[in-house]
Simulated scan of single mutants.
Amino acid sequence: MESSNADSPIDWGSWRAHTHATLMFIIKDGEILLIEKKRGLGAGKINGPGGKIDPGETPMQCAIRETQEELLITALRPKKVGELHFAMSDVPDILCHVYVARDFEGVPTETEEAKPQWFRLHDIPYRQMWSDDIHWLPLLLRDRSFLGRFTFKGEEVDWFQIEKDVFFPSGR
């Protein structure tokens, strides 16, 4: 387990997310498909496509739908690899389900929400991303699953803990 040095300021046993969301990462031919987010939470940052889960929708359905809406592509055979629990200081707390796919149908296309960008796996622009990404995205790139808990002050990580090699039942 990896963590910051201080004790958690949150009782994670009783913590409940206000918002449930997803992220999808497409990795193919030594590159990762990311987006420059054009609006909403994180506008201007580089991230994976994703968004809020709609009522009646599973996390996987949401991850596929959001990728279709933001990039006009369909992720093929996505696999859940992580969960991120975010206790935020200035927006409602978020539980994010993280998926990876190794293939897709369609052509990544810029939309009103997102501009697609391919990056070599060793050239990921962490300085343009959320400050938590550097703690867990390398695990995703090494095919390791994870459960991350983060507290934020504004847009900066204040505290974190990551459990590695977590089992997620398929379809979750």
Rank of each mutant, 00 (worst) to 15 (best):
E2C: 00
D7S: 10
D7Y: 04
S8H: 03
P9H: 01
P9V: 08
R16S: 14
A17P: 07
H18Y: 15
H20A: 12
T22K: 01
L23R: 08
L23H: 09
I26C: 04
I26R: 02
K28V: 03
D29H: 13
D29Q: 13
G30V: 11
G30R: 07
E31F: 00
I35S: 00
L41G: 02
L41D: 10
G42Y: 01
G42M: 14
G42W: 03
I46Y: 01
N47H: 12
P49D: 06
G50A: 05
G51S: 10
K52E: 13
T58N: 09
P59Q: 11
M60Y: 02
C62H: 07
C62W: 06
C62V: 09
A63Y: 11
A63N: 04
E66K: 05
T74I: 15
A75R: 03
L76P: 01
K79W: 10
K79I: 10
K80C: 12
H85K: 15
H85M: 13
S89Y: 11
S89T: 08
D90M: 14
D90T: 15
P92I: 10
P92L: 11
C96V: 15
C96Y: 01
H97G: 02
A101L: 04
D103E: 14
D103C: 11
E105D: 05
G106V: 08
V107I: 13
V107C: 12
V107E: 14
P108N: 07
T109A: 02
E110M: 15
E110Y: 10
E112N: 14
F119Q: 06
L121F: 12
H122F: 08
H122M: 15
D123N: 09
D123C: 12
I124L: 09
Q128W: 06
Q128E: 11
S131H: 09
D133M: 14
I134A: 03
I134V: 07
L137H: 04
P138H: 01
P138W: 05
L139I: 01
L141H: 01
R142D: 08
D143A: 14
R144K: 11
F146P: 01
G148A: 12
R149F: 12
R149I: 04
F150S: 02
F152T: 06
K153G: 06
E156R: 11
F160V: 05
Q161C: 09
Q161W: 06
I162R: 00
K164T: 12
D165K: 08
V166I: 14
P169V: 14
